Amino acid sequence: MPPVSLFGPLDALVGDHIEYVLLAVVLANQVTRILAHRQHVQQAAQGGADAMTRSLPHTVSNVLLVLVSFYYLTLHHHGGIVASVLVLGLFITDFFEFEARKVEARRDIPLERPKGAIAASLLTLTYVGYQSLFFVVEPIWTALV
């Protein structure tokens, strides 16, 4: 458990493994992004832009990702700030990507993949993966540094 405990029992349960929790939530968010895009393509094909709605599982995973990254910020300040900025960028990108898909549906053109959100998600996954799986590259890192 970290020396300063802001959330008491939560810190005792999850505090030592928060990097892995964050990695799992980032991966779950990517899966929900794929499913949400499939849902949007089907909705646009059936009813156009008016039929398109935000995917509830993806919205929940976005909110959970923001909350977990903010919790990570309370435990590990440097890594938490970087992860939180990346996650907030991903959250904002997801918001505007949905609106871009609605514009495409209104114009009756095929819906593209949410490229900006995919790029932001991969950048977030790379950083969180580095934070949580550092033990894999630690021998190489310590040899170089």
Rank of each mutant, 00 (worst) to 15 (best):
H40Q: 15
T53I: 11
R38A: 15
T32D: 05
M52C: 08
Q30H: 15
Q39D: 06
A44H: 08
V41E: 12
A49V: 04
V31K: 01
H37I: 01
G47A: 04
R54I: 05
M52T: 07
R33M: 15
Q43K: 13
V31I: 05
N29I: 12
H37E: 14
A51M: 01
Q46T: 13
R54E: 03
S55Q: 05
R54A: 02
H58A: 04
P57M: 03
Q43Y: 03
S55G: 07
R38C: 11
V41N: 11
I34K: 05
A36Q: 03
H37L: 05
R33A: 12
R38H: 08
V41L: 14
R54Y: 11
V41T: 15
Q42V: 07
R33H: 14
Q39T: 06
L56R: 07
H37F: 09
Q46I: 08
D50K: 01
Q43L: 05
V31M: 08
T53H: 14
T53A: 10
R33Q: 09
S55T: 03
A49N: 00
A51W: 06
R54Q: 02
Q30W: 15
L35K: 02
H40Y: 14
D50E: 12
T32L: 02
A45C: 11
G48H: 06
H58G: 00
T32M: 10
T32R: 04
V41Y: 13
R54N: 12
G47I: 02
Q39H: 09
D50Q: 06
R33P: 02
A45K: 12
L56I: 00
R54P: 06
R38L: 12
D50I: 04
A44L: 07
M52A: 03
G47H: 05
P57I: 05
Q39Y: 08
L35N: 14
A44N: 04
Q39S: 11
G48I: 09
A49G: 00
D50Y: 07
A45H: 04
T32K: 08
A51E: 04
I34M: 10
N29E: 14
T53Q: 10
Q42R: 13
Q46N: 14
Q30I: 15
T32Q: 07
V41Q: 09
A45G: 06
Q46C: 12
H37G: 03
